[in-house]
Simulated assay, not measured.
Amino acid sequence: MAKILKLLPLAILISGTVSAATDNPWYVGARVGGTTFDNQDGVLSGQDLDKNDWGGGAFLGYNFNKWFGVEVGYTYLGQADYLNDGFEVQGMDFVGKFTYEVSKSFDLYLKAGGYWFDADNGVVNESDTGVSGTAGVGAEYFFNNDLSARLEYQYYNQIGDKPSPGESDVHFYGVSLVYHWGAPAPAPVVEPEPMPEPVPQVVRVDAVSATLPFAFDSKALSPDDIQKLQPVAQQLVDYPDTKLYVVGHTDSRGSLEYNQKLSEERAKEVAGYVGQHFGISPSRVVVKGSGELEPVASNDTDEGRAQNRRVEVYVPGFEMTK
Score class of each variant (00 low, 15 high):
31 R>L: 15
50 D>N: 03
83 L>A: 13
221 L>H: 00
184 P>S: 07
153 Y>S: 06
32 V>L: 15
155 Y>K: 06
9 P>Y: 05
211 T>P: 03
209 S>Y: 04
264 E>Q: 07
279 G>T: 07
64 F>K: 04
154 Q>I: 11
282 P>N: 05
243 K>W: 14
145 N>K: 15
316 P>Q: 07
86 G>R: 07
300 D>W: 02
297 A>W: 06
164 S>I: 13
138 G>N: 09
217 D>V: 00
308 N>F: 03
260 Q>V: 04
186 P>Q: 03
9 P>F: 05
231 P>E: 07
179 Y>S: 04
219 K>F: 02
26 W>A: 08
305 R>G: 03
233 A>N: 10
263 S>T: 02
2 A>L: 14
27 Y>K: 10
54 W>E: 14
230 Q>E: 15
202 V>E: 12
202 V>G: 12
257 E>K: 06
289 G>K: 01
107 D>K: 10
278 F>N: 11
176 S>K: 09
206 D>K: 15
153 Y>H: 11
260 Q>L: 11
112 A>D: 00
52 N>H: 06
9 P>G: 05
153 Y>W: 12
231 P>M: 08
304 G>Y: 01
59 F>E: 10
128 D>S: 14
195 M>W: 00
119 A>S: 05
114 G>R: 09
232 V>P: 01
126 E>V: 13
114 G>Q: 06
138 G>Q: 06
232 V>I: 13
61 G>Q: 01
246 V>C: 06
221 L>N: 01
192 P>L: 11
245 Y>K: 12
147 L>W: 13
172 F>V: 03
218 S>A: 05
157 N>H: 14
143 F>V: 15
267 A>D: 03
126 E>K: 09
58 A>R: 00
41 D>S: 15
158 Q>A: 14
100 Y>T: 15
5 L>E: 10
77 L>C: 02
248 G>M: 04
157 N>L: 09
84 N>H: 07
88 E>S: 12
258 Y>W: 10
220 A>W: 00
116 W>K: 13
31 R>P: 04
249 H>Q: 10
303 E>I: 00
139 A>Q: 08
134 T>S: 02
203 V>A: 12
314 Y>G: 13
26 W>Q: 01
261 K>T: 00
236 L>N: 08
30 A>M: 05
158 Q>M: 08
237 V>N: 14
310 R>P: 08
181 W>V: 10
196 P>T: 02
222 S>I: 08
315 V>K: 03
53 D>R: 06
90 Q>M: 13
191 E>S: 03
194 P>W: 12
